[in-house]
Nucleic acid binder design. Sequence first.
RNA 1: GGGCGGUUAGCUCAGCGGUAGAGCGUCUCGUUUACACCGAGAGGGUCGGGGGUUCGAUCCCCUCACCGCCCACCA
Length: 889
Amino acid sequence: MLGMIETTFNPKAVEPIWSEAWEKSGAFKPSNAPGADPFCIVIPPPNVTGSLHIGHALNNTLQDILVRFERLRGKSVLWQPGTDHAGIATQMVVERQLAAEGNIGRREMGREDFLKRVWAWKEESGGTIFKQLRRLGASCDWSRERFTMDEGLSAAVLKVFVALHKDGLIYKDKRLVNWDPHFETAISDLEVVNKETKGHMWRIAYPLEDGSGEIVVATTRPETMLGDVAVAVNPKDERYQSMIGKQVKLPLTGRLIPIIADDYADPEAGTGAVKITPAHDFNDFKVGKRHNLPMINILTSRGLLNDDVPLPYRRLDRSVAREKVLQDLEAEGLRRGEDNITHTVPHGDRSGVVVEPWLTDQWYVDAPKLAVAAIAAVEGGKTKFTPKNWEKTYFEWMRNIEPWCVSRQLWWGHRIPAWYGPEGSIFVEESETAALAAARAKFGRTVELTRDEDVLDTWFSSALWPFSTLGWPQQTPELKTYYPTSILVTAHDIIFFWVARMMMMGMHFMKEEPFHEVYIHALVRDATGAKMSKSKGNTMDPLELIDKFGADALRFTLAAMAAQGRDIKLSEQRIEGYRNFGTKLWNAARFAQMNECAVWDQYDPASPQQTVNKWIVGETAKAVADVTRELEARRFNEAAGVMYRFVWNVYCDWYLEFIKPLLNGSDEEAKLETRRTAAWVLDQILIMLHPFMPFITEELWARTGEYGHKRSGMLITEAWPKLSEKLIDPTAEAEINWMIDLIAETRSTRSQLNVPAGAKIPLLLIGADRDGEARLERYQELIDRMARLEYSTSAKDAPKGSVTFVLAGATVALPLEGVVDLPAETARLTKEIAKLEAEVKKMDQRLGNADYVARAPEEIVEELRERREEEAASAEKLKAALKQIQGAA
RNA sequence: GGGCGGUUAGCUCAGCGGUAGAGCGUCUCGUUUACACCGAGAGGGUCGGGGGUUCGAUCCCCUCACCGCCCACCA
């Protein structure tokens, strides 16, 4: 029993019911209706063990709006859900748990047991985020949920890795990587964050071997001198000409290293002489290669100094070693001063520790080659960015892309399918069996193989997401129908991490772009404007907001704030305002119900005879066109704004007020038409608003369908309105707008004159105001019309010489004689006159310019002239009125 | 160093070549049978500064200032 609608909507009670009903009904699955266009979005997979933060809420709200919109428009919609295993992040969480429980660490535990533990954590917390997304109303096809480490996706990863390897697009290389000494793994360039840090620039003297003096180098990292293999100076640098080719005796180690000439040395920087440490600096690495210098690694995987440094420094932490090196140099009298500087230091984005360039063997994807097709797809318009300016960012990065280091020295992830055999042989195959077979073929006998210990970067599997979730490498019907997907919705912080890589993998393996459009939305920032992130923990909790205001309010707020181009600072007040919007809609429905505005399935929007009804039908047609256009253009804020204004400012403020007398009147035919129209418009509102506020609209759909014509199904399966522009009746539009304008004008007139309702003001004031006489006539006409339409009974009863009417919630009284607050009115008129005179002056100037240049269209000049005259005349009238008032006083 | 974005009402932000907008907040008024999560009104802005284009600039162009973000470099 639904019964009478209460005064407010109760989201907590209602939302779970609809969530379940929708899912059970199969409404989230693609309709696969014959002839229906496909529409597909793959969800940006959240971390499997994560929970919903406000960024997810925004991201998924926007996707859900599009998905529900297209579903209503009759497309066969697939919103593909899934989660990411989030290698480093998840492993980190579990390691922390182990530490907190006082358990043994992962190394002591061993790979197998540790992975068991991670899987257990995945099982325990893995469902959380999808439960939360359901609360938000996300209409994903939950039956198709995928996980980057499930069987199918893991198979895709293997296949891709092997295929790329066979094509030479994945290779193993020994080069410098960003090494995270905390996690003891390589990380990609993107996982390094540079932080401004206060530090020192130390100057150190390296004595020349021949005793002819010294060369002073500058460095921020003195401990790395233990791995120095040369000192470089610029060949054009006069100061050092004579030293090129000489040897210096490297302090603390006694090694002899050469002074070399290389353009890399900048005479302006430091002392102009730079120490070269190829194993621990990316630039030095290049110099080392150029000059065939040895590479001396001085660090262990944990960032301690290794055994290739003199005894006193071995096993010291790099920071401790720095102090000791400085002290020892001081003792030897080789320090040549220092400066305080601020410089940026690379840190691991997850670990937060300083990362080290470190020389290791890693697997690389040949990103520069894969980028070619990915760039072309965007250049050729196959994939479009919204807003378009992000294409520039995309191009910039893609055109300068570096090889992508994809191996990680972690355990949680896809293990690299490479096996090592005798004589340095490597077999990259999809299974151990295949690798063994390949090895047997090579060696002519069965050999022992050991598998690569490393796993792949999390983003490797994410890069396959658009096709792997649709079934690839199987040629599934879904893959055929929904690839390329329609649109990807994501935030700009992962364009490089994710979007770019999906483009590369999609173009390579599918030969087609993974999505036609990439919609980049803003980041939701915290109060200080800082980026909210999973690891920082400075997030707003969307679940709390949903508890407090309902999912619809949160969704509508996020949509209304999702303007293209600016990040969002969310405030609760705003959400509260949109919660009130829901209540407003709710009460409009309540009003309709109380007035027996029942749905009628035979309703023809072209049929109304009453002016107000013709008008609202036209307004509805406009709203449909507007909201459709804005959603198609992905201007979510505009689309939300259209609905907000239509519901509140048009339907509620004016239409429902205008029809009150009709509903209470005696014209039965008009009454019936009005009831049906009001109900029909409400239906259109519910449909259009459904993508934004699915719960309240679905609930009202059910409630309003309780009387009158029976609904054929849930709102979620309705059809988006298709209304002809012919429904806009210009005559009705003009009539109603005329009334609205006048009523608004009379309202403000009363207030401007600053008299209480019912008080009396002199006729001369109205008459003397701008357009005064004409206005008085119009008021009289308005009153007549409204009386005719039975808008007001009091108009008839108004005392002679005054008019009073009630409309749109306000009593408007216009007595035509009486008293007035003279000082206030004098001030107002003076101000008004000054404003008008300024206007006239401006007009004169414009007209002067226009005549002089004589280039303005005649119409405009004419318009300007007219306006000038009007303003001038008004000013004169006001002056006259002012004189009269002053005379009276 | 390269790139992107921002600067509009007290706050949070839309908008835009044609007389400045919303929500919230503030102040007045309101026991009108949908809604006080409401209604009617008011106040509050030289649209960051300076140039230019234009009949007309908050909007387009140039420039400066400040703020933020991304990338690169950092001896």
